[in-house]
């Protein structure tokens, strides 16, 4: 493989990895704070792309306004989802809330088919995004280039919120010791809502970038990325945000590496995630950056 082609694949891998990282963060944040795998997270990702789609095509908004609205509405939807499907079950056994998440996922997917229609829609790509930039011998589309940049900015902002603000401190406290956090006077409901909003916003950003990169929208488009990004979060250590980012990149770059190494394997690109999951669960089940922490009774 020539160096130029290798570079091309590397860029694609980093791009895909960024998308996976953005989506994996939502899974890991919600797990960290509620010990819940939000199976509906992939569908929230799907919703963001559709909101952006309709904002541009039906409401004729400029792309930047549409993207902003998609992020805001998706975050709001995340908050509503938590209130409706998860909060009422907070004192129920953990399996109940997991079942609710699966149910919410099916509900959103099928509502999507009902409302948006099952036929694929083409994500409208503003001309600015279709440019192809040539650096040296490598040609990269603008979209592929901005994905890691936008992801990096989003991650920097999230990191600031979590580590340098009062709310972020409260989030870290709640995810470590729910009851002790209550004793600090922390409003648990607010912190949980905020966590869902932040995770959904990350998913929305990921969804919009995904729509730009793979412009075919179907209501079930969130299933495979959702599953893969859940796996990415587990690989990195579920509950650990840095782990989610790491897992996302491992999955993204690995997937592209497989397709690049042999076109015959490209049909198996999705399988890579699952094989990796099995390996990690056998070798280091707490994930690459996860800690062996005993659950406090």
């Amino acid at each position: 493989m020539s160096f130029q082609i290798f570079l091309q694949h590397l860029v694609n891998g980093i791009s895909l990895g960024s998308l996976y990282a953005l989506l994996a963060i939502g899974y890991t944040m919600v797990y960290g704070i509620l010990r819940l795998i939000n199976f509906a997270h992939g569908d929230i990702f799907m919703l963001a792309t559709y909101i952006a789609f309709y904002s541009i095509t039906s409401f004729l908004l400029p792309w930047w306004a549409a993207f902003l609205i998609a992020i805001i509405l998706t975050s709001a939807f995340g908050i509503i989802l938590e209130r409706a499907a998860y909060r009422p079950l907070r004192s129920s056994p953990r399996i109940s809330i997991m079942i609710s998440a699966i149910g919410a996922s099916f509900l959103i997917e099928n509502l999507g088919i009902l409302i948006f229609g099952g036929r694929p829609k083409a994500f409208p790509i503003a001309p600015i995004f279709s440019h192809v930039v040539v650096i040296g011998n490598v040609s990269i589309s603008v979209v592929t280039m901005i994905i890691p940049i936008v992801a990096a900015i989003a991650l920097i902002i999230l990191n600031y919120i979590i580590n340098k603000t009062k709310t972020g401190m409260a989030m870290r406290a709640v995810s470590k010791d729910y009851d002790a956090a209550k004793l600090m006077g922390i409003n648990i409901n607010y912190i949980i809502s905020f966590t869902f909003a932040a995770g959904s916003a990350m998913a929305a950003i990921g969804g919009i970038l995904w729509g730009l990169r793979y412009p075919q929208l179907i209501p079930l488009m969130g299933i495979m990325p959702g599953l893969k990004c859940f796996i990415a979060a587990v690989i990195g250590g579920i509950g650990n945000i840095k782990g989610a980012v790491l897992g996302g990149f491992i999955l993204g770059i690995g997937e592209i590496a497989i397709v690049a190494s042999s076109p015959a394997l490209s049909g198996y690109r999705d399988a890579f995630a699952f094989v990796l999951l099995i390996v990690i669960l056998l070798v280091k089940p707490t994930g690459l950056l996860g800690q062996n922490s005993a659950e406090k009774v």
């Binding site: 009062k166 401190m169 409260a170 870290r172 406290a173 470590k176 010791d177 600090m184």
Partner: peptide
């Protein structure tokens, strides 16, 4: 809170 520094723990006490 085991994952947070002594000072962060103290600031959490003053959260409200």
């Amino acid at each position: 809170f085991p994952n947070m520094t002594v000072e962060e723990n103290l600031f959490l006490g003053a959260y409200t």
